[in-house]
Amino acid sequence: MTLMTGIGAAPAGSARPARKSGRRWLPYLLLLPGTLWLVVFFFGPMLTLGAASLWDPAGSLQTGYAQTLSFGNYVDAVRDAGPQLLRSFWYAAIATLIGVIIGYPLAYAIALKAGRWKYLLLVAVVAPMFTSFLVRTLAWKTILSDNGALVGLLRDIGILGADGRLLATPIAVVLGLTYNFLPFLVLPLYASLERLDRRLLEAAGDLYASPARSFVKITLPLSMPGLVAGTLLFFIPAVGDYINAELLGNPNTYMVGNVIDSAFLVRLDYPHGAALSFALMFLILIIVMVYLFRSGTDEVV
């Protein structure tokens, strides 16, 4: 806003009021596409979904749904999908943890140690995103196949039993989640580590801080905004994901996304599907708020 008024004020002396008043509309004009986008693709769908979540569950596609403000839909939906809901948060949390363990050293190495390999490594992190999500997940089916090399190796060295497998297990689902969302964690982390002022680390060394201590006291706190943003960008889509559970899992590893998918496409139970979607959204929102509050960062990257 200060910028805008600054520009508007500059030619004020040259006395062309018509132009000035025209410029007052400029910011709103510039905001228009974004606002329209939000209204059409965000508020509109949210309102219709919200309305659908309160429809009379006794209705059907054929007879139509009456709006009865049935808040009971939320109770029913969350109760029926309880196991899948818990599982979603549990799997996403484990995957996020693994993601941080893999992603932090990776981002650190790229930002601080990679030298001239930096951009090549960055491309390597991003390149998988050039192919479709689905294709990448299907590739894991081949990698983890029961008769594949990886499972054969793990069986030979005794990590898996003779009849053990990876595909269609929770391990495969968590692995798929970790793999698919890792770039979202690495990129913000890289961005904040890259801006790290290395003189601070030198100063810490001069003052006889051990490397571990200067990491805990300097690097980690300064990379916090990147870590918080990265874990959120990882965790939120991971909770709602259903492709990994469907392709790499079994009936006992399905997540809440699968239930919502089935409610809308197979069971045609729109009120409960919509209620479950909203409930999931609220739960994620609460978790994110608590997380942001606890981590004490209001400036995310």
Partner: peptide
Amino acid sequence: ALAVSGSALVACGTKGAA
């Protein structure tokens, strides 16, 4: 504003699809 536009939508259900 959100509540007004929301309640306008919320007020109605859907007709049958047949």
